[in-house]
Amino acid sequence: MTIIPPPEPDPAALQLSLARLRAQRGWSYDQLAARSGLSRRTLIEIEQGRTIGTLATWHALAHAFCIPLGDLLSPLCAAHEPPGPEV
């Protein structure tokens, strides 16, 4: 039996997810910080790929955007999908 380790988080996937959602709503860093309870600096560091944040950080962001946490983190899963069967 082969055990496959979980994929490493991809900061680029997370930063694009956050930037896309923030841009879709037209929110500034200050607006998202106020809605999420996170610091402006944390948001900038995530969008610039310097940190991936914690699960609590992403939970606060999902709550601020009123979306399920899984939807916010789905780019991580899509980046590590196993290849489909060969036909």
Results as ranks from 00 to 15, higher is better:
Thr57Pro: 11
His59Pro: 00
Gly37Met: 01
Thr42Tyr: 00
Gly53His: 10
Leu72Glu: 08
Leu61Asn: 06
His63Gly: 06
Arg40Ser: 06
Pro68Val: 03
Leu55Tyr: 09
Ala78Met: 06
Pro5Leu: 10
Arg50Val: 09
Cys66Glu: 13
Pro68Ile: 02
Leu55Ser: 12
Gly37Pro: 14
Leu72Pro: 01
Ala64Val: 05
Ser36Asp: 12
Ile3Thr: 12
Ile4Gly: 01
Ala60Ile: 01
Asp10Ile: 09
Ile3Ala: 12
Leu14Gln: 08
Glu45Thr: 09
Ile52Gly: 11
Ser28Asn: 09
Ala56His: 11
Ala78Ile: 09
Leu61Ala: 04
Ala33Trp: 02
Trp27Ser: 05
Leu32Cys: 05
Ile44Pro: 00
Phe65Ile: 00
Ile52Pro: 05
Ile52Met: 01
Cys77Phe: 08
Thr42Asp: 07
Leu38Asn: 09
Ala78Asn: 11
Tyr29Glu: 12
Ala56Gly: 15
Gly70Phe: 01
Ser74Phe: 10
Arg20Asp: 11
Gly70Asn: 13
Gln31Pro: 00
Phe65Val: 01
Ala60Leu: 07
Leu14Phe: 06
Ile4Gln: 15
Leu72Lys: 02
Ala19Glu: 13
Trp58Pro: 00
Leu18Gly: 03
Leu73Tyr: 05
Leu76Asn: 13
Leu16Ser: 13
Ala62Lys: 03
Leu73Val: 06
Ala78His: 12
Ser74Asp: 11
Leu76Ser: 11
Ala78Phe: 05
Leu32Trp: 04
Ala12Ser: 12
Pro5Asn: 14
Glu45Phe: 12
Ala78Ser: 09
Thr51Tyr: 03
Gly37Ser: 07
Leu18Cys: 05
Ala19Tyr: 02
Asp10Ala: 11
Gly49Lys: 05
Ile67Trp: 04
Leu38Asp: 08
Ile4Met: 11
Pro7Trp: 00
Ile46Pro: 11
Asp30Trp: 01
Ser17Tyr: 01
Thr51Ala: 08
Leu43Thr: 06
Pro7Asp: 10
Ala34Thr: 06
Gln24Met: 06
Ile3His: 14
Asp71Gly: 04
Leu21Ile: 00
Ile52Phe: 04
Cys66Arg: 15
Ile4Pro: 00
Thr54Arg: 15
Asp10Gly: 03
Gly49Tyr: 05
Trp27Asn: 09
Leu21His: 14
Leu32Asp: 13
Ser36Thr: 08
Leu21Cys: 07
Ala60Asp: 13
Ala56Ile: 00
Ala62Tyr: 02
Cys77Ile: 10
Arg25Asp: 01
Ala19Met: 07
Leu55Thr: 14
Pro75His: 10
Cys66Asp: 14
Leu14Trp: 03
Gln48Met: 07
Arg41Gln: 15
